[in-house]
């Protein structure tokens, strides 16, 4: 049994975007703070710290999860994927490129979490309806875009991955 006393930093090791990373965390440190401030991956953002806004969503062993509702110590040994890992080499991945094409972000603060949900969702749901996409996205709050571009981008990537050509113009 793992047991960590309060106020006692311990070592946490996890796989962040394919690379093993180690940092120090007290038992109470949130995974979101650990990723951002201990590991320096600041692409994951905090919007509410009570699990509603979705900005901090990362993938834990491939599954979209609120990083603010997990302790860093719970991530020990797990695979954590964040927005920083979504690129295709140096280039934007297809989902990111579609977001850009569709003006699916403005301030970009909520975007990292949305991309992580979409990444898992599209893996599991290759042929989503617009309602499926909206239902999945309803776990995220975006204050800038009115969501139109986001929905369009996700549907387009789903179609692309099934072999349809990308659109060229914006929404």
């Amino acid at each position: 049994m793992t047991r960590i006393a309060a106020n006692t930093p311990c070592r946490v090791r996890l796989i962040l975007n394919g690379k093993e990373r180690v940092g120090q965390a007290e038992s109470r440190m949130l995974l979101s703070d650990f990723i951002r401030h201990e590991l320096g991956a600041t692409g994951t953002h905090l919007g509410c710290e009570h699990g509603v806004c979705g900005a901090c969503t990362v993938r834990v062993d491939g599954v979209a999860s609120r990083a603010c509702l997990m302790l860093a110590v719970q991530a020990e040994g797990r695979r954590i994927d964040t927005v920083e890992g979504l690129c295709d080499g140096d280039a934007l991945g297809d989902l990111q490129a579609a977001f850009k094409r569709h003006h699916a972000l403005q301030c970009g603060f909520c975007t990292a979490g949305i991309l992580n949900s979409c990444a898992e969702f599209l893996d599991k749901t290759p042929e989503p309806s617009e309602l499926d996409v909206r239902d999945m996205l309803s776990g995220h709050l975006c204050r800038c875009t009115g969501y139109t571009g986001i929905v369009a981008a996700v549907l387009e990537v789903a179609a692309q991955r099934r072999g349809a050509p990308p659109e060229t113009s914006h929404v």
Binding site: V83, E84, L92, K100, H103, G108, F109
Partner: peptide, 21 residues
């Protein structure tokens, strides 16, 4: 013209620099 935004290249990579970053 509806140009794609130059801001998005960094933001979509998680490379934005917000206050707490």
């Amino acid at each position: 013209y509806a140009r794609e935004r130059v801001e998005d290249n960094a933001l979509l990579r998680g490379a934005g620099r917000f206050g707490d970053d």
